[in-house]
């Protein structure tokens, strides 16, 4: 029973990983770049929400209505002034530019907010610790359920957008070949701008849940990038639903690892990620 509980908690933790990985997975799918500033952007959104809650006493849920569009606007600017130029510089420049951006964001946040760890959990009432008891041994946190639900909803919404809408078709076509879509009247730069805006809007939601379920500080971004990346990689690059399964695999691996030996929580996650890579190498199937 305890093992079953570990497994279940792992699935819910995986929901969180999938949630923070949505943005990374989507941006990679569309623009073929790994955004190394992803974790720092998530933390930036968390700090924005924290300031609104702490100084202006605005509930995080309400604040999201302002922060999500603000982050989307930032995404559009990021594409216009950084990624667009970086993409024209070849394969490596987007990596170098977004890594530079991550260093700027992390350290600027540190200078502004200091080293204190923060959390949004005091601002959301009972939700942060309320749970349902399924049996004597198994309890399920309401926040955990909400996070897993949000991850599924967000991935579902993006999949629907890509599959069913006009802009979705434009995004898929541009991902396929940005040069050719120009011939049929699609402005690839505008599509990339919208895609990056959408990616940062998703990062804002991820930042909200990061801040509500746990604590964060200016240097939390690196770890978030790694977890998100592991979820995307385990699930398979370019697959949105794969990211959900990848996140769950990672969460379960960490929890099972920790149940064997408490110090091996993170080790088990990283080893699983590397094992998946080795497996793909052995089978000769590595996503480009």
């Amino acid at each position: 029973m305890i093992f079953l509980n570990q497994l279940l908690q792992g699935v819910f933790l995986g929901g969180y990983y999938a949630l923070i990985a949505c943005s990374l997975s989507f941006l990679f799918g569309v623009m073929r770049i790994v955004n190394l500033a992803h974790g720092s952007i998530v933390v930036l959104a968390a700090f924005l929400l924290f300031v609104l809650a702490d100084r202006f006493e605005i509930s995080p849920w309400l604040a999201l209505i302002a922060v999500v569009p603000a982050m989307a606007a930032l995404g559009w600017l990021l594409q216009r002034f950084v990624l667009d130029r970086a993409l024209r510089g070849g394969l490596l420049v987007p990596l170098l530019a977004t890594f530079g951006l991550a260093i700027v964001l992390d350290n600027a946040l540190f200078e502004t907010f200091g080293a204190d760890t923060r959390s949004l959990s005091p601002f959301i009432g009972d939700l942060s610790f309320d749970s349902w008891s399924l049996t004597d041994d198994i309890t399920v946190g309401k926040m955990d359920v909400l996070i897993l639900g949000s991850a599924v909803a967000m991935l579902g919404a993006v999949s629907l957008l890509l599959a069913r809408t006009r802009i979705g078709r434009a995004i898929r076509a541009t991902a396929e070949d940005p040069g050719t879509v120009e011939l049929i009247g699609i402005d690839a730069r505008a599509v990339y701008g919208m895609a990056t805006a959408l990616a940062l809007a998703m990062a804002a939601v991820a930042g909200a849940f990061l801040a509500m379920r746990a604590t964060f500080d200016p240097y939390t971004g690196g770890a978030q990038l790694i977890f998100a990346f592991e979820a995307v990689a385990i699930g398979g690059f370019g697959s949105l639903w794969g990211t959900l399964w990848g996140g769950i695999a990672l969460g379960v691996a960490q929890n099972v690892g920790a149940s064997i030996d408490p110090s091996s929580f993170f080790i088990a996650g990283h080893v699983t990620f590397l094992a998946v890579l080795v497996g793909r190498v052995a089978l000769g199937r590595v996503a480009a």
């Binding site: 990679f28 770049i33 790994v34 190394l36 394969l91 490596l92 987007p94 990596l95 690196g222 990038l225 790694i226 990346f229 592991e230 990689a233 690059f237 110090s263 993170f266 080790i267 990283h270 080893v271 990620f273 590397l274 890579l277 080795v278 190498v281 590595v286 996503a287 480009a288």
Partner: peptide
Amino acid sequence: VMLRLRGGEFAVGMWVVAELAHLLVNL
């Protein structure tokens, strides 16, 4: 293992290797 990855996968994959090495040395 790592050299079969490309671009961003190699970049972040190496970061995971560093994290893992750190955790193992701590043990």
